[in-house]
């Protein structure tokens, strides 16, 4: 029983990170029909900024807001440099554009820093645990669950109650019509990228606290997990992204705990295959399949 609860919390903590990334992926898919494979670059860039600051002796009190801010700026910048120009292109073009961004950023860090990873100190409390009702929890898991809940509530509030949020949702529903009705596409898309960057930034904070590592491909795996989570929940459904993220986190923790040791290193591959099998039976994710599009 104890073990189950611990793993549940562990899985929710991990899943919360994925949910934050997946929500951003879903938002961007909503406004411009792009599955953003460069969504992890916010984490990569933040990681190097943290590394630089940590070298200069900055504490995590400074790092946390910097990471979030860096992620937001990176997200908006990438939209401005790359995605703006392929906005109405085919899926193929947009997918490869985002992959191009990923490779350029990754290779740039190889070029200007190093191919090997850089490490910085993790906060002291990261490995500490607390005991609640006789069950030991890692503090970081609880912190992630709290932060994720707050961020998700914030994101929902922004989307439901603010003018920008409504514009984003309107544009996600029908971009052309929204544009005709006076919603400015550049601003809406920028807002969506900023919000997605913010959510990814919060995920990045915990990711970097856990790993304390900056590497050229640091963002790759979290990004892929976020994309998978968004797809599992059904792309473009925001609540689906959250459910997909949590589910993915739980499955991952279960696999890590119960897989035999000799294939322990294949968790990511196994997750990929599981999701691929899921798509064979439910190409549009686990949530209820909506009506077929009107031709």
């Amino acid at each position: 029983m104890t073990e189950v609860v611990q793993q549940l919390v562990d899985g929710l903590g991990r899943g919360g990170e994925y949910a934050l990334i997946a929500l951003g992926v879903g938002l961007i898919f909503g406004v411009m029909h792009l599955v953003n494979f460069a969504h992890g670059e916010m984490i990569t860039v933040s990681a190097y900024v943290s590394y630089g600051l940590a070298l200069a002796g900055a504490s995590w009190w400074i790092l946390v807001p910097t990471i979030v801010l860096t992620a937001v700026l990176t997200s908006v910048l990438v939209e401005f440099v790359a995605f703006r120009w392929v906005r109405s292109s085919s899926d193929f073009t947009m997918l490869l554009t985002s992959f191009g961004v990923h490779f350029v950023v990754q290779a740039a860090f190889v070029m200007f820093v190093s191919a090997s990873s850089r490490h910085f100190d993790r906060p002291g409390w990261i490995t500490s645990t607390v005991s609640l009702a006789g069950i030991r929890f890692e503090v970081v898991d609880l912190a992630i669950i709290a932060a994720t809940s707050v961020s998700l509530i914030f994101a929902v509030w922004v989307l439901q109650r603010t003018v920008y949020g409504m514009a984003i949702r309107a544009a996600a529903e029908d971009f052309d019509t929204a544009q005709l009705l006076g919603i400015r596409p550049n601003q809406v898309i920028r807002a969506a990228f900023a919000l997605a960057g913010l959510l990814a930034g919060i995920a990045a904070v915990f990711f970097l606290m856990r790993t304390g590592r900056a590497a050229p491909s640091a963002g790759l795996i979290p990004m892929l997990k976020g994309v998978l989570a968004a797809l599992i929940g059904g792309l473009g459904r925001l609540q689906g992204a959250v459910i997909g993220g949590l589910l993915l986190g739980l499955v991952e923790i279960l696999l890590v705990s119960y897989l035999p040791d000799d294939i322990d290193g294949m968790v990511n591959g196994i997750i990929f295959v599981l999701v691929a099998v899921l798509f064979i039976f439910r190409p549009s994710g686990i949530l209820k399949v909506g009506p077929a599009q009107r031709p």
Partner: peptide
């Protein structure tokens, strides 16, 4: 199946699964 049913994105993710699975194996 997924390519025909809805866009190409699910199909692309399946191909990514092939790449990662082969690598990890």
């Amino acid at each position: 199946r997924s390519g025909a049913a809805r866009g190409d994105i699910a199909a692309t993710v399946i191909t990514l699964a092939v790449l990662f699975a082969a690598y990890e194996i």
